[in-house]
Amino acid sequence: MRGQWRASRTANAGIVRLLTSGAPDLAPERGRSFPRDAVDDAVTHAGPFDRAALTPRTG
């Protein structure tokens, strides 16, 4: 995994285990992908339950 995390690098494995266990209710979460050149739109979209991910260019 790559990206910015709010926890230490060693916490990643624990976070992944927690999420894959199904313990947290992720139903309210909404995600949307944005191309890299739409970073301003991604930042505007992001909120408490609205996640934004930048995707790399292809080709």
Rank of each mutant, 00 (worst) to 15 (best):
M1R: 02
G22R: 14
P35M: 10
E29D: 02
R32C: 07
A53Y: 04
R30I: 09
G31L: 01
R36D: 07
R6Y: 14
L19A: 10
L18P: 12
T44K: 05
A27T: 11
T10V: 11
P35N: 14
D25I: 12
S21P: 05
P28I: 08
L19F: 11
P48I: 07
D50I: 00
P56Y: 10
S33M: 01
L18T: 15
R6K: 07
P48W: 06
S21G: 12
G3T: 05
A13F: 13
R30N: 08
D41L: 05
R36Y: 11
P24L: 09
A42I: 00
T55D: 00
W5Y: 13
V43S: 01
L19I: 12
L18N: 15
T58G: 12
T55I: 02
A11H: 10
R17H: 11
D40G: 04
T55R: 00
M1P: 04
D25Y: 11
V16A: 10
T20P: 12
D37P: 01
D40S: 09
F49T: 04
A7R: 15
R36A: 10
A27C: 15
G47V: 03
I15N: 08
R36G: 12
R2V: 08
G3D: 15
P24N: 08
R51A: 03
A46N: 04
D41P: 03
T55G: 00
D37L: 00
P48Q: 07
S8H: 06
R6D: 13
R9A: 11
N12C: 02
L18F: 15
A11S: 11
L26P: 14
R17M: 07
T10S: 09
M1C: 09
P28R: 10
V39Y: 01
G47D: 05
D41I: 02
T20I: 15
L54D: 10
T44G: 02
E29W: 05
W5Q: 01
P48R: 13
I15V: 15
A42S: 03
W5C: 01
R2E: 08
R32S: 03
A46G: 03
L54V: 06
P28Q: 13
L26S: 14
